[in-house]
Every structure is written in structure tokens, then in C-alpha cells.
Nucleic acid binder design. Structure first.
Lengths: 227, 227
DNA sequence: AAACTCTATTTTGTATCCAAAATAATATTT
DNA sequence: AAATATTATTTTGGATACAAAATAGAGTTT
């Protein structure tokens, strides 16, 4: 049984707010597991469920496809995308590559104000309930990355974060992981203040690697979750 | 005036073949410069131009948006995405990150047959006319990357290749660049045969870096192309 | 009973239609 | 005459309608 997801209702970027709402809801249901991998998604059915016509539903499905949450074949119903160990490793490898690049490009552009803003988010993380951890964690890192001013890279990182949520929600962050994460965040902030790109990239890579290992360990303990 | 693009008619992946065709055509026109950056794209106009209704055009526009070729704002006409030096550097940085990762993950899975297939493509490049260079070049690298068996990463690399075409088509590959490219391809193939991931990643990074530098030099010579 | 074929139903893809928003054009005011 | 307000036109977003493809079901055959 899936644990309630960490990230809630991150706004989805789509020209139409109606479509964005549908994407957001379906994303939640896929991440939480209410919609199981492989489950068929009929447009008519979804349309009546959301009280709209098939048109915005179609757009939402296409958007979810580009995010990797559903797969679509010609003339067939969309299906919730499968989850797999390979896909999981794929995502985390890509995250390391993208986020170390982002922090390297951000460092030369970082202002002290921005680093302070990131530190403020870390303080929030420490005092906040566990529920919001995933969201706040992402916001901390994105705050730093945004300094690089590269929309393409930032969009890609957000996309991977979304994809990772599908797996991360399975394991609720334990106190050991949280402590390690906190320590690494401060390491990262120090590296940023020192404008040390290599150090910052190194912490970032370790940070993502540990999130991956935490889940791998978790999955090993409970092996009844192949797909 | 834009030079004819190198990559021609790479098939676009979309559930509907009709939409795929429209995406493909518009992509060509945007890459070639027939549709200038910032130009407005009316759905009705495009629909009559392609002899279809607005519906498949809408889907095509959304697909092009996810590829970064057009930008869409709510209730406004889609516009051909702007080109900029920053975007260009963004893309090439991301290519280095993604493609070095792909070759590293591919190396342990590489069969000799696959490396031979890549070498066959290199032979084709040497005897082929300049026109097909971009396409063949991409196919050579993808042949190697595909061994890693990670659909997400491969899709991302293809997307970046598409985005890069928008800039690469500006400069027709000169003989100096071609020679250097050929040499690097053989270096890459050697590294693959030796299953040396570090060396392969290193050549890949240099290879992409040189494509970038070639264009930067070209743009510096002809500075009348800001947007 | 299992496999196959043919038919009925469902579901998608595209076209057409209407309302709301944005753009362009015109008139009005200073 | 320039700037603003108002109206008309264009254009998008969404709903409805219909044809082609896919799925499901019944019937038939082996």
C-alpha cells in the first residue's frame, strides 16, 4: 500500500489552467499509486470524472506523456507508465548529471542573498513536519540552481524531480536519512558561500546518490514490489 | 539567409501519423529559418495550409512546445521560439552531460557487433555528401548509446540533438571540422573496443565541445545575428 | 474445451461549432 | 496630433458530432 506522497500539488505549467488542474490531479493519483502502473485511462471516463469534455483531458494526457507518467500508443487508451528498477536508476543517473551541471553553472552567478534564501528554506525543513520534506528539499536546490539562468536545464531538472517523486514517495524519509540530508545541505551551502564549484558538485552528487541508495535499501527489504 | 539544414526528416514520434507529419514539416521550417524566431503561428492559418482542421495542428503545436521549438502563452498565438547565445550554450552543456553519461553506461553493454555497426556508419560518413553529415553523425553516436538501454536518457539526447540542429544548421561543416570529427570518431571507436569508459566519455565531451566552438567562431565572424 | 472468426461496442482521432479572450481598428478626448 | 477609450475582428479554448480503429463478446469450427 503506497505511503502518502511527499510532494503535494506542485503547480503544473500549462497554458490552460483547466488542463493544468487535470494534469496535477492525475499526477498525484499516479504518484500515490491510486492509479496503478499499466492501468488504462479512458478519455471519456476521465472527462466525466473531472466534469469536462474530452478535449482538455486529451491535452492533459499528452502533457503527462511528455513528463513520462503515461504512455500512449496510436488509437489505444493511454496507460499509466510502468515503474522499474532500470527506470529508477536511469532517472537518478540523469539527476546527478543535470544537477551537478546546474550547480556548477550557478556558482559564479550566486548572490549572497540567494544563498541566504536557500539557508532559510533549510531552517524551514528542520522545523517543518516530515510531510513537506520532499517539496522543501526541491525548493532549496532549485533556489540555488535558478541563479544559472538556464530555462532549459531548469525545466529538465524539474521534470526529473517529478519523475523521481514516483519512486521516492514509496519510502518515507527516516530520521537517519534526514540527519544526513541536513548535514549535506549545510555542506552545500558552505561550498556555495566559498564559490567552490567542485565541492558543490561533489556534495550534490553524493546527496542524490544517497536518496537513491535509501530507496534501493528499502526495496531490497520489501521485495514484493516488482512490476 | 539560412543555409539548408543538415538533418532532413528525422521521423517524429507521435501517436497520430497526421500530427507527426505536421510536427515534422514545421520543425523543418523552423530549423531552416523559413519561420523566423518570434513569428506568430495561427492555428487556422496552419490548418488551411496543411489541409486539415485545427485539431491536429493544436496537437502539433503542443508537441513542438515540448521540444522547445515554439512557445505558447494562454489564449495567445504560438510563436517560434527565440534563439540566443545563452540557449545555445545551455543546449551544448546539457549534451555533454547527457552524452558522456550515456557512453559511460553503454560501454559495459557494448557488443562488438554494435561497434562494427557504428564503424560502418563512419565509413558512410566519409563517402557520403556533406548534406547527410548531421544525420549520420547523430546515428553513429546513438548506435553506441542505445546499448545502455535507457529510454529516458536516449529520448533526452534525441531531444537535445533536435534542439541543437536549430543552431548547427547555420554553419555548414567545413573540411577542417570534418577531418577533426572523423579523427575523433575513430578515437571514440577505439575507446569503445577497449571498453574504456573514461576515454570514451572524454572524446565525447571534446567532440561536442568542438561542434560548439565551430559555431561560436562562425557566429563571431558574422555578428549580425542577434535576436 | 480451445482456437478462431465475425459482429457489436467502446474508444480514439478529426471536424465542426460556440463562447471567451486577445488583437486590431476606430472613434473620442485632451 | 497624441493618447486613451470603445468597438469590431481575429484567434484561441472547450463542447459536441461523426468516422475509423481497437477492444470485447458471441458464435462457430475443430
Amino acid at each position: 500500500m503506497p505511503v502518502r506522497p511527499l510532494a503535494d500539488h506542485q503547480p503544473i505549467d500549462h497554458p490552460s489552467p483547466q488542463v493544468a488542474e487535470i494534469v496535477s490531479r492525475l499526477r498525484e493519483e499516479i504518484i500515490s499509486g491510486d492509479l496503478a502502473p499499466g492501468e488504462a485511462l479512458g478519455q471519456e471516463h476521465l472527462a466525466s470524472r473531472f466534469g469536462v469534455s474530452r478535449m482538455p483531458v486529451r491535452e492533459a494526457i499528452r502533457h503527462l506523456e511528455s513528463l513520462g507518467f503515461v504512455t500512449v500508443e496510436s488509437n489505444k487508451r493511454a496507460r499509466v507508465a510502468a515503474v522499474s528498477a532500470d527506470d529508477f536508476l536511469d532517472i537518478f543517473d540523469m539527476r546527478v548529471a543535470a544537477e551537478t551541471l546546474a550547480i556548477r553553472r550557478a556558482i559564479p552567478e550566486l548572490t549572497n542573498a540567494r544563498i541566504d534564501a536557500a539557508e532559510a528554506i533549510q531552517k524551514q525543513i528542520e522545523s517543518a513536519p516530515l510531510g513537506g520534506f520532499g517539496d522543501l528539499n526541491m525548493r532549496l536546490h532549485m533556489t540555488l540552481y535558478e541563479a544559472c539562468g538556464r530555462p532549459r536545464l531548469l525545466a529538465h531538472i524539474l521534470m526529473l524531480g517529478n519523475a523521481a517523486d514516483r519512486y521516492l514517495c514509496m519510502v518515507k524519509a527516516g530520521p537517519t536519512y534526514r540527519e544526513k540530508s541536513d548535514r549535506e545541505h549545510y555542506e552545500l551551502l558552505s561550498a556555495c558561500r566559498a564559490r567552490d564549484a567542485d565541492a558543490a558538485a561533489d556534495v550534490t552528487a553524493r546527496h542524490i546518490g544517497e536518496a537513491r541508495d535509501a530507496l534501493v535499501d528499502y526495496l531490497r527489504e520489501i521485495p514484493g514490489s516488482e512490476s
